[in-house]
Design a protein around this nucleic acid. Sequence first.
DNA 1: CTCTCAAATAAGAATAATTCTAACTTACGC
DNA 2: GCGTAAGTTAGAATTATTCTTATTTGAGAG
Lengths: 146, 146
Amino acid sequence: MQNQIEQKCRDAGLKLTGQRRTIAKVLTEATDHPSANELFQRCTEIDPKISLSTLYRTLRVLEEARIIQSHDFGEGYARFEVAKEEPHDHLIDLVSGDVHEFNHPDLERLKQFIAKEFGYDVVRHRVELYAIPMKSPQGKRRRVRS
Amino acid sequence: MQNQIEQKCRDAGLKLTGQRRTIAKVLTEATDHPSANELFQRCTEIDPKISLSTLYRTLRVLEEARIIQSHDFGEGYARFEVAKEEPHDHLIDLVSGDVHEFNHPDLERLKQFIAKEFGYDVVRHRVELYAIPMKSPQGKRRRVRS
DNA sequence: CTCTCAAATAAGAATAATTCTAACTTACGC
DNA sequence: GCGTAAGTTAGAATTATTCTTATTTGAGAG
């Protein structure tokens, strides 16, 4: 009964403590992009004795092991998500704070093209669209792969 | 002998104090994207008595008046630049820390297109390319409009 | 199964960028 | 020149995150 993160911890040679199991469970079950504080609240519901330091350290360790990913959407704190195979970008709903993920091949091509014009190779990038729901609902609302 | 920023302060109904003139001068003369600390150092060379609080407050006020723009390149602090008429994105040189500006019309179209798929209108966006200089210099090094 | 010890944890102190507070000062319209 | 709202100063406060130190524990070796 062990989740993806626990297995990856093992593979990375990380000890599996009770606290890490708790954090792994919370991260695995999150469908949003929670902040450290939100994660802490969810963790304390499972284990009220867990320490905030432990959460932060674990988040750092998990990120260094490429098991999770942190994002800075300019809110003054970081948000976290389980690392996915294929990288993706984010659209942040300015009204609700919800985050949608997308990945557009044209964007990948374009960024490489632009960098090449300057004589650079892109190592990583950050594309964030801060947006509000369309007033008129007649926009083609297409289904998006998760 | 007054610079663009001083005129814009006047237009915005902001008092023109000695400190603001100093900050305006430093911002106007900057060709890079300095941090608050770097700006503070440059300001104190002109006026050693200027306060860091004043710099921060002034930066906030100037940004609210759309006279300058702050950016967060994930370094733990903000960088500032004088607001330009046309918005642009940034390519950050991971080796030197230099910042290059670019604006590609395809990118603008693409971001609107992507947002529309989700039923959103883009209010603002953030596109940052973190890159390293190309090893082989035979990449097509095209002229880039400023 | 238990011993060992490097790795992990808890609690709170420390850090660092930025903002706030409260008392003093100044720009600028009249 | 005057009055006053806006600005400045110095340092305290804030806030997310990291560090420190003493204590605990997972998990491999025997």
